[in-house]
Structures are given as structure tokens and as C-alpha cells.
Simulated scan of single mutants.
Amino acid sequence: MGRVPIVDTLQRVPGGMMLIPLLLGSVVRTFWPGFLGLGSFTSALFRDGALPLIALLILATGAQINVRQSGRVLAKTGVVLMAKTVVPALLVIAYGYAFGREGILGVSLLAAMVAFVNSNGGLWLALATQYGDEEDRGAYIASALNDGPFFTLVFLGLSGLGAIPLVYIVAAVLPFVIGFVLGNLDAKFADMMKPASAITVPFFAFALGAGIDLRSLAVGGVTGIWLGLLVALITGALTYGAYRWLLGERSAVGFAAGTTAGNSVATPAIVAQADASFAPFVAVATAQVAAAVLVTAIVTPLITHYLHRRLQRGAAGRPAGARA
């Protein structure tokens, strides 16, 4: 029988298990949207399956973290949250003070804040699975916290309009906590959940891509592409440096935080509901953020892979016992 090396091909592409299905989902959404609307199991898996599958992966990731590792996971979570969300938000606030809400070069304060302060948790999990370890996957908690409009509203408003009910954050973190508890109560449960990452990543990636119309790149134009490149380079570098200098790890996985989450495309409209003065910026900001989602999903895995190979070559060239 003939053999088509589908899995081997995906694994040869940096972040390919996530990136290629995501792009395929975007292509289907753009040119054959009727397929996604067939209904029943087809729509449930290929259009609506992202959140349930990511939730399952989060639970499975929690199950792999034992009590002795949990402190390190929290440390990595804090470092990622600081480097990917807090510091970029302060930079964007300075941008707003300097250039106003309109910003410069067509990038408004709203678009910049939305694109910079959140991260693509699914892509982090995929890259952490390929280039990191269980502790890195556990640092997904940072994406669970910064995903959605919470930090965008808080940093933009500082007026109470950005408040989000605590239950929103609890609901995002709870699957990880449940997996953590079950995995520590029963080692067999943890073993049972180990294959979840290899199974779920390509399918939730396709479903995430099915929510992105490739034509949004044309609407967002060059400004959206440049915004995505800046998000990848600045926040990826910040988190990569934080891994090195605050955690003492030479790991390429830190750069995997340099992304914009797919569901952040809805955040500009949510901000405008809280503060109507942002309404004039919503249409362009939404298109720019959508472009940033696609650009970071392509650029960040490539740079992460490059850094990983470079670190591997550096480690191979160092004498045994030399300090990293």
C-alpha cells in the first residue's frame, strides 16, 4: 500500500501541526464556507470545535504537572504575563500619550492595545509541546488570563469600564486546575491524558482558522501586517529575554508568546461598547487585528524554530559542563 507522509510533513514545518491546519481552515472559510455550515458533526468539529478541544488540551496539560513542578509553572506564568501583557501594555499606553487615540501610520491606540496585550494560547501550547516541556505548557495559564478583552479594557480605561466579572477568569483557568488535581490524585489519569496534545492540536487549529477570512488581510492592509510583525518581534523578544534573564533558561519557547489571539478580533467592538468614544476606530482596528492574528501565526513559529535550532547548535558547541 502507498504511504502519504502527512504527519512527517507537518512536523518538518516549524509549528506545522498548528500552522498548516490553521491556514487550511482559513482557506476553507474564505473560499468554501458552505462546508463549515453543513451541520452535525462536520460543523461541530471543523467550525465550532476549537474551544472544547483547547479546553481538553488545557486539562490534559494540567494533569502532567505534579505538585513539585507547580511552583515553576507559576513562575513561568508570571514571567510570560509580565513580558507579554504588562510591559507591552505600558508601551502602548506611552504610544497613546505621545500620539493620541489616532496613533500614527494608521495604527490607532485601540488596534495597538488589542494586538499587543493578548496571546494565542493554542499556538503557545502547540509550540511548547514541540520545543518546551510540561512546565512550559502549564504556563498557558498566562494566555488564559490575557485572552479576551479584560486587560485591554483595564489598561485602556482605568475607569471601571474595563472590569470583567471574576467568573470569566475562573472559567478560563478551571480546566487546568481540574486536570492538575486529577493528575496528582491518580498517576494513571495523567498517563491517559498524555497523548491529548498530539491529537487535539491540528483539529483545534483548523477550527481557529475557520474563524478567519483571508480577505481581512486585504482590508487591514499593510498597516495590519506591520502591526503583526511588531507584535511578534517585540513581545516575542521580551518574553524570550525574560525566560533567559528572569528564569535562567535558554529556551526558544519564550518567543512563542509573540502572537495575537484569534478571538481578539472581537475585542475592538467590545471596547466600543464599554466606551463609545472608541467607536470610530473599530472597523479598521478589527481588520488590523485580524491581519495581526494571521501574521503572528506565521512569523512566530518560524522565529521560534530558528531560535531553537540556533540554541541547539550553541549547546552542541559548548564543552561539557560549560555554563548555559
Rank of each mutant, 00 (worst) to 15 (best):
G100F: 00
I6K: 10
A115K: 06
V173K: 00
V265N: 05
S159Q: 08
T260G: 01
G254F: 08
A315L: 10
H305I: 02
V284Y: 10
V295A: 11
R309S: 14
G2E: 15
R72M: 13
A290S: 11
S277E: 11
S159F: 01
F189N: 07
L311Y: 14
V173M: 07
G62R: 02
D275F: 01
A112V: 04
L19C: 02
A261K: 02
A207Y: 06
L311Q: 11
G2Q: 12
A98P: 08
S108K: 05
G37Q: 13
R244S: 05
T300W: 00
L38D: 13
P280C: 13
I178V: 14
V87W: 15
N184M: 05
S70T: 12
F46T: 12
L91C: 13
A261Q: 00
P195R: 09
T9A: 14
V231Q: 01
R250D: 15
L311R: 06
Q273I: 03
D136M: 12
L10P: 13
A290V: 06
I54G: 03
L22F: 06
L229K: 02
S143Q: 02
V79A: 11
A297Q: 01
A139P: 03
F150D: 01
P165H: 12
A242N: 04
S216M: 04
W245F: 14
M1K: 09
D48N: 15
T30E: 08
G16C: 11
A324R: 06
Y131V: 03
P149F: 06
A291K: 11
L302Q: 10
V73C: 09
V253T: 13
